[in-house]
Amino acid sequence: MSTTVAARWVVLDIEGTLTATSQVHEVLYDYARPRLGPWIDAHPDDPAVAAAVADIIREADLPADAGTEQITTVLHAWMDADRKATALKTLQGQIWQDGYTRGALTTDYFPDVVPALRTWHDRGLQLAVFSSGSVTAQRASFSHTTHGDLRELFDAHFDTANAGPKREPDSYRAITAHLQAPPEQIVFCSDVPAELDAAAATGWHTLGLARPAEPFADADFGDHPAVTSFDDVHLEATR
């Protein structure tokens, strides 16, 4: 069934919405996992790395003088549990950025994604991202794709550090304030019903992505319009 929405901003989830879950859990996670410890050791004077390490020690209740091996063990456990810890996302984002810069990583999207993004952009819609992956990781992932560098398509990036948890309405209120648009002029696209619930609670339009073979393919999207592809979505820019 086709869905039509008029909006000024399109805010997009990434995993399960733009890319297959395997792109994150297999390609990106497998790339970051063996590099976490060496990355920490190689960047002791990087303020972001130091802050992430301090957060990990605090959140995991490790000794203040915990070594890299202990910290890495925690990070691997968090990855196994798919925990959306900001400190983990910070380190992963730096590692992925380096990987994309080196040409070791390339982002692949569902076939309908890039044509839709370009069409919406050409129609005057503004595109933003809200992902649990860090802003650094988001920008890196769009920089080196099977369709080239897509960064110019996006006007804003949000993560759990600058907006908040993806299942909390306050996060969407924070994004609304940043975008300086009425909530009814924002549409959020995600494969996770709980995230759509939080966005809808703030007055946003919502669109569920029930992509075949993805974890939320058979989820109950309730009152949220849901499609299996952006080919079934018609977005128009509000005037």
Rank of each mutant, 00 (worst) to 15 (best):
T206D: 00
Q94N: 15
F110W: 06
Q94I: 11
D65W: 11
Q180N: 15
V129Y: 10
S134Q: 05
P165F: 02
A77M: 06
A128P: 01
Q94V: 07
T68M: 07
L117A: 07
W120G: 03
L117W: 04
A85M: 13
S141L: 13
H144W: 15
S141Y: 08
G93E: 09
W120S: 02
F158P: 01
H121V: 13
A181E: 09
I71K: 01
T68Q: 12
T73I: 11
Q70E: 09
G133I: 03
T101P: 07
Y172E: 04
A156D: 14
L209Q: 00
H76Q: 15
D65F: 13
G203W: 00
L88E: 04
A104F: 06
S132A: 11
G124Q: 12
A64H: 12
Q70K: 08
A163E: 00
T101A: 15
S143C: 10
A140V: 04
D112G: 10
P165L: 02
Q94Y: 15
V74F: 08
L127P: 09
F154M: 01
I71R: 02
A66N: 04
A128G: 09
G103A: 13
R139Y: 03
R151C: 11
F154R: 00
P111V: 10
A64L: 15
Y109S: 01
L125Y: 13
E195K: 03
Q94M: 15
Q94H: 15
T160E: 00
S190T: 07
G103H: 08
S141R: 06
